[in-house]
Amino acid sequence: MDNHIKIVLVDDEILFRKGVFFLLDREKNIEIIAEASNGVELVTFLNENENHPDIVIMDLKMPLLNGVEATKILHKEYPQIKIIALTSYDSSSFIANMINVGAVSYLVKNSTPQELLKTINEVAVKGFYYNEKVLKVIQQTISSSKNSKSALNNNYLTNREIEVLQLICEQKTTAEIGEKLFISPRTVEGHRNNLLLKTESKNSAGLVVYAIQNEIAVIV
């Protein structure tokens, strides 16, 4: 892929962070613009610099300000920045919590370099990327708390919006959705924006959660 992706690495384990840095630094389309050892350093960097990343790769357990709290701040103050959680915690509760506060992808630290690179590139193109494990956790979390189901009547969505939403859940790009439905990419973005407004979702990742909650899309 030839799209340029700016990244900030946030992890208090210096050796691990440097390892990820050297892995990503070899990629022609990826630029590491900063590193931070905790959420405070990350927020300070963003506040003091105009050169913001497209993606932040975020650890969870860090001193001063952990990854969950830092994600909440970024989701509110810098919503255009995509957050990929990269952590040693593999439990469903951690995954569900990070997705809930705004992470658009979740990886454990024993993932392969190929998995990390794929996740970064998918997030850069589509705005989010859920692997099979994360999708199952979302489904399990929703099915175990029936009261989380949205009160929004699905009739509020048009047939075309539902078609677009289902294809978003299949993690199709805007161009792929347009090609499938014989509409322009600009029209796809219009439908996506309408879906965000109607479902009160903040990003495409939230749309996937909404679709599973309301049984518009079933992930197998």
Rank of each mutant, 00 (worst) to 15 (best):
K146Y: 10
I95V: 15
N100S: 13
K72A: 01
N110Y: 07
P79N: 13
I84V: 13
E77D: 13
A85N: 11
V68L: 07
Q80M: 07
G127N: 13
V68I: 13
I57E: 03
S145D: 15
K146V: 10
I83Q: 06
I83E: 09
I84S: 03
I55H: 12
V68P: 00
F45I: 05
I138R: 02
V104Y: 02
Q140K: 12
N51A: 04
E50G: 14
E115L: 00
T119P: 12
Y106L: 04
V125Y: 08
N97G: 08
V68F: 05
N47Y: 12
K61P: 00
A96P: 09
A151V: 15
I138Q: 07
Q80G: 00
D90Y: 14
K61D: 08
G67H: 07
H75Q: 08
S145A: 13
S144E: 04
L117F: 12
S144C: 01
D54R: 02
E115T: 04
I99Y: 05
T141G: 05
K146L: 14
L60R: 00
S111P: 13
T71A: 02
F45A: 01
I55Q: 01
L152W: 06
K72M: 08
V104S: 01
T141E: 12
N66E: 00
E122T: 03
E132A: 03
I142F: 10
N51T: 11
D54Y: 09
Y129S: 01
G102C: 06
L65K: 07
D54C: 07
L60E: 00
K61Q: 10
Y106V: 06
S145Y: 15
N97S: 11
L107H: 08
F94L: 00
N100T: 11
V101C: 07
V101R: 04
T119D: 09
G127H: 06
E50F: 07
L117M: 15
N121R: 15
N147K: 13
L74A: 06
S144W: 00
H75Y: 03
F94Q: 03
K149S: 08
I57T: 06
T141Y: 13
Y78A: 03
I120W: 12
S148V: 09
Y89I: 10
T71N: 08
A85M: 11
L74F: 06
Y78M: 04
L107G: 11
H52L: 14
V125T: 15
Q114L: 12
I84W: 08
T112S: 15
V56T: 09
P113L: 10
D90E: 14
D90V: 10
K133I: 14
E77H: 10
N47W: 02
V137E: 02
L86E: 06
I95T: 13
K72Q: 11
M98Q: 03
T71Q: 02
Y130T: 05
E115C: 00
F128K: 05
